[in-house]
Every structure is written in C-alpha cells, then in structure tokens.
Simulated scan of single mutants.
Amino acid sequence: MQTFKWQRIVLKVGSALIAPEQNGCSSRYLLSIAQFIVRCRAQGIEVILVSSGSVAAGSHLFPADKARSVAMKKAMAAAGQTEMMAAWDRFFDFPSAQILLTHGDLRDRERYKSIRETIFTLLDHGVLPIINENDTVTTDDLRVGDNDNLSAMVAGAADADALMICSDVDGLFDKNPNLHSDAVLLPEIDKIDDSIYAMAGCATSAVGTGGMKTKIEAAEKATSHGITTFILNGFKEQTFNRLLEGENPGTIFMPYEKPMQEAIHWRTHTASEQGELVVEGNFTEPLDKNSKQLNPHEIVEVRGEFAVGDTILVRSDDGTKLAKARANYSSCLLNFIAENESTEFSDEVQDSIGPIISDEDIAVLEKS
C-alpha cells in the first residue's frame, strides 16, 4: 500500500452484504471483500474479520409466515452461523477460525485478556479470525447489540492499526443521502463531537441492526485507541481496489494524537459499569490523582449492586461523570459506610479499609 501503512486491520461486514435477500448467504458482494482480504494478507497485512449475518443467513430455514420470537431468532442464528462460516471459508485457501463473543466476555477483564491471546495466536499461525456476536446464547444484559461497536472493541483488543466498517453508503454525509440529493460526503473527520453525531441521523439498514450512529460510536471507540477508522461502501468493488491503491474511498476518522492506554481504553469503552458511586464533587485535584484520598464521608449515594472488582461509574453530586473505576469494595459495604456518615466513624473506616477506588484502575471521563 502506498499511503496506508498497516500491519493489522479489522474489517466489519454487515448482514446486508452477507444475505442481501435474507435467503441464505450470497456471494454477490462477498467475493470482492474476500479478494481484498486475500490481497491484504499477500502484502503481509494481518486481517481480522467481524462478520454479522447469522440470523439473516439462517432465516430462510424457518417459516416466514409466523411471528418470529426471540427463541426463533436465536435458532436462526445457530443455523445461520454455520452457513455463514461456510460461505466465507469457500473463498479462502488458508484456514479460518470462528470466535463468538458476548459483551459479558468482553467486559470481564480476564476473559478479555483471553480473547486477546486467542486472536494473537491465530494471527501468529496464519489463521483468519472471523468474529461475531453470539446471538444464540446472549441476553439483553450481555448483548453488545450491534457489530459496529463490537468491531471497535475487537480492534482495540487486537491492537489493530485500522478499522474498516462496511456500509451501504459511501461514508458519512452532512445529511442523509437517501433523502437529500445535495448531501455532501465528508472525506475526513479529525474530531468526533455532537455535530458529527447529528449528521449520522437514524438511518438503518433493512437487514442489519446498526445504523450510521452506531458506526460513529464505533469510530469514537477506535480512534481514541489510536486506530484509524473508515466508513466505506461495501457494495462497491472499487472501494476495496482504491484502498489497496492507497486512496480513501469513503470517510476516514483520524486517530487521537495521544491514544488511551489499552487498560484505560478497555475500562472506558468496553467494560460496562455495574453500579454508581455518587461522591461530593468538590475535589481540588483530578480524580485520578486524588482517588486514594477519596474518604468514606465523601460518599453521597451508592447506586446498584456490585461486587469487589466490578467496574463502577463515579459521579459527582451535580451529575457530572468523573470516572469509571474498579470497585475495591462491594456495594453492600459501601452502602453501610454511606449510611454511617459521622466523621469519627468515617476516619476509623478509612484507616482500616484503605482506598475505596485505586488510581491504578481508573479511567477519567470527559465531563458530561
């Protein structure tokens, strides 16, 4: 590649590309994507494929005239997953591997590390990892919900250089191109803010579960980890030819100049908070430098139920989100502390239990 110097990329392909007619997998759009993967690998670029489509691929095996319950959709995913893997596998003369994930796997630090190790080992041995959300077993509590955000989490876990999200439009436009003929494609985004989200609108594919908003969310996750992110038209063969020629065929989101460290990025963008700790918001120092001085009497409220080691959201009493952190104590104990607010008691507790949260396991958030 001339302009882009990648060692490892994550490519996200949606349901509309896998099964455009919802009648099983189709090679109509997958062939050019598969050729892109083959050509990348031939140039020494490692590829990780995040592929939606199991439900769409398996839907034709079930009655279309009946209401599709959650259980039926899970069954579609189970049946369609094997069909989808077979569809990808027939394009390649190298081995591939299936990895099915839930958010529960990603938000648990030990399982997250295990996922990283598995991906790295597969890549080291020339095996193409093909990743999808495990729709068959996941519940609402454990769902990522869309493979755009899943692909960003995977890109972070895999220390990728670039994330490429395939869409049904050429990239991000200043307004919905399906509704406005004068919509203008934005070739480069330096910073994602509210104005960028406003442009995303709420358009969604008739087949997929994501929309432009989830792609922007994914781009925000990835770029904060130093990962260059593209939104591309996966339906056009020339998209992938232009990438291989070093050109930008869609919208490129530039990475942070100072990316988050891996552990901080995981806690910010992948770990989900299991509860909240509301504290007095009159800290004179940043929370990451002051967390060891967070005293029990500064706890205003404990929300939710969480155990030692869970990720919690620390919020000031004016509603400002301060940080996501590892809880050193359970919600039960912290509730007991908060209900006994006397200074004497708090000082005694502080002396005996140590820091409530540790500055070694904290991700400071932008004020919101």
Score class of each variant (00 low, 15 high):
Ala19Met: 08
Gly24Leu: 08
Leu31Ile: 12
Cys40Pro: 07
Arg41Ala: 03
Glu46His: 10
Ile48Ser: 04
Ser54Trp: 01
Phe62Asp: 06
Lys73Asp: 01
Ala75Ser: 14
Met76His: 00
Ala77Leu: 02
Ala79Trp: 08
Thr82Gln: 13
Phe94Trp: 11
Leu100Trp: 10
Leu122Arg: 12
His125Gly: 09
Val127Gln: 01
Ile131Ala: 07
Asn134Pro: 02
Val144Phe: 00
Asn147Ala: 04
Asn149Arg: 12
Ala155Glu: 15
Ala157Cys: 14
Asp193Glu: 04
Ser195Tyr: 00
Thr229Gln: 11
Thr239Ala: 02
Thr239Pro: 02
Phe240His: 11
Gly246Phe: 11
Lys258Asp: 00
Glu262Arg: 12
Ile264Gly: 03
His265Phe: 14
Thr270Trp: 04
Gln274Leu: 08
Val278Gly: 01
Val279Asn: 03
Pro286Thr: 02
Pro286Phe: 03
Asp288Gly: 06
Lys289Trp: 06
Lys292Val: 07
Val300Ala: 09
Val302Asp: 09
Arg303Tyr: 04
Asp317Thr: 12
Asp318Val: 12
Gly319Arg: 14
Asn328Thr: 11
Ser331Arg: 01
Phe336Met: 01
Thr343Asn: 07
Phe345Met: 03
Glu348Cys: 03
Val349Glu: 07
Gln350Leu: 07
Asp361Met: 09
Ile362Ser: 05
Ala363Ile: 05
Lys367Phe: 09
Ser368Asn: 13
